[in-house]
Design a protein around this nucleic acid. Structure first.
Length: 903
RNA sequence: GGGCAGUUAGCUCAGUUGGUUCAGAGCAUCUGCCUUACAAGCAGAGGGUCGGGGGUUCAAAUCCCUCACUGCCCACCA
């Protein structure tokens, strides 16, 4: 016999124990088999990452689908991984060094990289432990780190191939430079923010002293790199000046006035200073006109010797000083407030500097075309679908991807340079020499830069399966990798945030199509963005990002999972009522209370089971038990729930799935069925009948627990064992998912039971309105249609119990008794005898009010049915419904009037 | 400037193909209850002309147009 359940659900210990068991038993490990596969790639969290609510939502969604697939007999594999996160990891370790007065250069490249590995091995991947707390059923055996040998090997393979095909090239371009990281960034890593600055209008005197050109700029510190002033060729004001020279303020150099369409006559003074090395647009002008491109800003964002006395100053300090000097020397016409957008590095700490430098790029256009097509033709589906537009827009305007980073932590660019100026991409120095046809003892220099972290991420679908791993480097087939790839790819589902649609989703599609010839996944689920009560994104610096582990500690992992799913509709942001001070999230009570509700429903069944079992001595063989209306009703409600929950999951309406379970368990099962079971048990003629009643309830709850398991794995596991006494060696997570048997769905029975519910509710309402305590039993008289007498009589025990009746009179010609209040629902006349407690005036008023309301409603229906075009156009079943309404309400009205009259 | 969402009860949100059960749930509020699982609970109640305006239709929270506001993405005119 199972051990009695506690009065309230205590998740903590139970969760830890179950997870340990799951992990030991290896039930979440997957191998290719004869079953149909189902695979998900976990978006690899950063190695420096700590669990936040974005992860909680994201991973819960994935876990639900993986668990659901597993229970549906699929060979389900969830590939977890960890991202080396170039910039943030390197920065983290550098900060530590800085605390000891060291820089990475003091250590040297090799020692520094070793240091980062040490850090990784000590602190990295904490998030995995945290995800386990959440109950994630990933196949941890398949965990991959983006710097592992097989991932690195795949990265090299792709780089070399793209290089050899001319899709990767090196070029001197204006790129986004992070002065803090001292590295290039991709366009996607730059975020724009509105900044209040000044617009300075400067005087550029004509060289011949014949006048002055006014030029507006927000960056006066860049004048030292000015190479021209551009005007629009159509601008009458300046046309005659084209080709003449002006003197750069302070710098004193002479630069030409050139004509370029970029200059907008409507904006500012119509004259633009051209600084090709420090502005992307100016760079374009510089290219068009073959201008020199001097730089006056260093990699660390200080000015260089071109700036003369300002050399060495930080760009922002320099800006103020240069502006002051311009003012002093009367070279400034005016200074105005000016608000505009400035690019910041993704981490939001510093303004990005447009910086002219040699970098590596991927030519994206050829890769984008097939990737665009795959989404357009439905090979890949987005949920919600509207993200397709965003995807198409980006793909249609895709720009080359700057992939080189001036860091040490990452995949080193596999390009080698020979002393005679040639370059080649190769896996090793030896291979590079071979490719270049050089002798084995010739020195080659490898490119010092590393690749953008996303350059390994975009290969994730293949890298996780060992594609082009160390074995195939030597041109040997890799059967293990082939086996995994042919079985698990394309994966079924990718769950991620829409914020990385370009960073990751789009690029994975491109890489997979290019290198594996097929899409990486079939469905993409874009999760909600988690926000606080004020609508702000969660962030550590705002103090509005509570540690999920603390919340799990207080509410339980299942409660957190359930609440998140319940509150996070597909494609919309989810707001959590985060308390800044206590770091609590009170709405998690929703999930906790629900877990407790499920717990107690099961606890009730268990207690009854024990009672029955205790009497087992009475013995006897099983005898047929005919299911009651209530039994068939709950079975029908259960099947309906199975059906709609399954559909909801299939359609990725995951919130709907949670709601359906919540409503079924709480409203149908607990509020009504458990109460009915009490009545049925009490009135059962035999021990066998009692057991049969319980068996039925156990059947329903068994399926319900399995249906609920994907979202609440711990609770359902605990109860499944608690109720059925299963051995710990089996898990509900490897049981089968409930399947809908439509023959059990019984609309007629549901309707009959609903009438019963309405009658009970009417009794409760009247009692409450009369101020009678719920415990007090009162006489009830029900006047029902002749054909319903039998049914209501058969349900009298339930009506009596739930409606708290003393005597219950049921008949087809029952008249209103003395001292009763009355109501009519679905043709059933309900009289509650309250005797002395009746307030006749109040009762008259109540009935009158109801009569007025119904009369109005009835008039509406009559009008509708009298409308020729309604009868002509509406669907027959709709008209039938209206006719039914007319009949019912007329009947009800008549009864109400009669009752009013008899007071 | 271009694109995409959203606007329903005090708050957070459901509402699939227009039509019974369409105006709902949870929280909050109010009333009464320790009713043989659950006070993390039970039974009731109040509260919204579904952002504004127009249109299509026998019928609109739902479809179309338009306006307003909010949020996000892209672009980035010095």
């Amino acid at each position: 016999m199972s051990t009695p359940l506690e009065k309230t659900y205590q998740p903590g210990n139970s969760e830890r124990q179950w997870y340990a068991l799951w992990q030991e038993s290896g039930i979440y490990h997957s191998e290719p088999s004869a079953e149909t596969p189902y695979s998900i790639l976990m978006p690899p969290p950063n190695v420096t990452g700590v669990l936040h609510f974005g992860h909680v939502l994201n991973n819960t969604v994935q876990d639900i689908y993986i668990r659901w697939a597993r229970m549906n007999g699929r060979q389900a594999c969830w590939f977890p991984g960890l991202d080396h996160a170039g910039i943030s990891t390197q920065t983290k370790v550098e900060k530590e060094l800085k605390g000891r007065g060291l820089t990475r250069h003091d250590l040297g490249r090799e020692a520094f990289v070793n240091r980062v590995w040490e850090w990784k091995n000590t602190y990295g991947g904490i998030i995995f432990e945290q995800l386990r707390t959440l109950g994630i059923s990933a196949d941890w055996d398949r965990t991959l780190f983006t710097l592992d040998a097989s991932a690195s090997s795949a990265v090299q393979e792709v780089f070399i191939t793209l290089f050899d095909e001319g899709l990767i090239y090196r070029g001197k371009r204006i790129i986004n430079w992070s002065p803090l990281a001292q590295s290039a960034l991709s366009d996607e890593e730059v975020i724009f923010r509105e900044v209040r600055e000044y617009m300075y209008t400067l005087r550029y005197h004509l060289e011949d002293g014949s006048g002055t050109l006014l030029v507006a700029t927000v960056r006066p510190e860049t004048i030292f790199a000015d190479v021209a002033v551009a005007v629009n060729p159509k601008d009458e004001r300046y046309r005659h000046l084209i080709g003449r020279n002006v003197i750069v303020p302070i710098a004193g150099r002479s630069i030409p006035i050139i004509a370029d369409d970029y200059a907008d006559p409507e904006f500012g003074t119509g004259c633009v200073k051209v600084t090709p090395a420090h502005d992307p647009n100016d760079y374009e002008i510089g290219i068009r006109h073959g201008l020199p491109m001097p730089q006056c800003i260093n990699a660390n964002a200080t000015l260089n010797e071109l700036a003369g006395e300002f050399a060495g100053l930080d760009r922002f300090v320099a800006r103020k000083k240069v502006a002051a000097r311009l003012e002093e020397t009367e070279l400034m016409e005016r200074k105005e407030d000016y608000t505009h957008n400035v690019g910041f590095s993704e981490r939001g700490e510093e303004a990005v500097e447009p910086y002219l430098s040699e970098q590596w790029f991927v030519r994206m256009e050829p890769l984008a075309a097939p990737a665009l097509e795959a989404v357009r033709d439905g090979s890949i589906k987005f949920y919600p679908n509207h993200w397709v537009r965003t995807y198409e827009h980006w793909m249609g305007n895709v720009r080359d991807w700057c992939i080189s980073r001036q860091l040490w932590w990452g995949h080193r660019i596999p390009v080698y340079y020979s002393s005679d100026g040639r370059q080649v991409a190769a896996r090793t120095t030896e291979q590079a020499r071979q490719k270049l046809g050089l002798a084995p003892d010739v020195d080659l220099r490898q490119d010092p830069d590393v690749l953008d972290t996303w350059f390994s991420s975009w290969l994730w679908p293949m890298a996780t399966m060992g594609w082009k791993g160390p074995i195939s480097q030597h041109e040997q087939p890799d059967p293990e990798s082939d086996r995994l790839m042919s079985y698990y790819l394309p994966t079924n589902l990718l769950v991620t945030g829409p914020d990385i649609i370009f960073f990751w989703v789009a690029r994975m599609i491109m890489a997979s199509l290019k290198f594996n010839g097929q899409v990486p996944f079939k469905d993409v689920y874009f999760t909600s963005i988690v926000r606080d009560a004020k609508g702000r994104k969660l962030s550590k610096s705002l103090g509005n990002s509570p540690d999920p582990l603390g919340i799990i500690e207080s509410y339980g992992a299942d409660a957190v999972r359930f609440t998140m799913i319940y509150l996070a509709p597909l494609g919309m942001d989810v707001r959590l009522d985060i308390n800044d001070k206590t770091q609590d999230i009170p709405s998690m009570e929703l999930g906790r209370n629900f877990a407790n509700k499920v717990w107690n429903a099961c606890r009730f069944l268990q207690m009854k089971q024990h009672e029955v079992s205790a009497d087992d001595a009475s013995g006897g063989s099983a005898e047929s038990y005919e299911l009651t209306t209530a039994d068939r009703w709950i079975a029908s409600r259960y099947m309906t729930t199975v059906q709609s929950a399954t559909t909801a999951l299939t359609d990725y309406r995951i919130t709907e799935y949670a709601r359906l379970l919540y409503d079924f368990i709480w409203r149908d099962f607990c509020d009504w069925y458990v109460e009915v079971v009490k009545v049925q048990l009490a009135g059962a003629p035999s021990e066998h009948a009692r057991r049969a009643i319980l068996d039925h309830a156990f059947t329903i709850i068994d399926g319900t627990l399995r249906l609920l398991h994907p979202v609440m794995p711990f609770l359902t596991e605990e109860l499944w064992h608690g109720l059925y006494g299963h051995d710990v060696s089996v898990s509900i997570s490897t049981s089968t998912a409930p399947v809908c048997d439509t023959s059990v769905i019984d609309v007629a029975t549901e309707e009959r039971f609903e009438t019963l519910q309405l009658v009970v509710e009417a009794l409760r309402r009247q009692r409450s309105e009369m101020g009678i305590p719920p415990g007090e039993r009162l006489d009830v008289h029900l006047n029902v249609r002749t054909q319903d007498v039998e049914f209501f009589t058969s349900q009298s025990a339930i009506i009596s119990a739930l409606g708290r009746c003393a005597a219950l009179v049921i008949g087809s010609d029952v008249s209103k008794p003395e001292g009763s209040v009355s109501d009519v629902v679905r043709g059933v006349e309900i009289h509650l005898v309250v005797a002395g407690k009746i307030d006749f005036d109040k009762e008259r008023a109540r009935l009158s009010k109801e009569i007025v309301r119904l009369t109005g409603a009835l008039a509406g229906v009559e009008k509708k049915l009298a409308n020729a075009s309604f009868v002509a156009n509406a669907k027959p079943e709709i008209i039938e419904v209206e006719r039914q309404k007319l009949a019912d309400w007329t009947d009800t009205l008549e009864k109400l009037r009669r009752n009013l009259a008899s007071i």
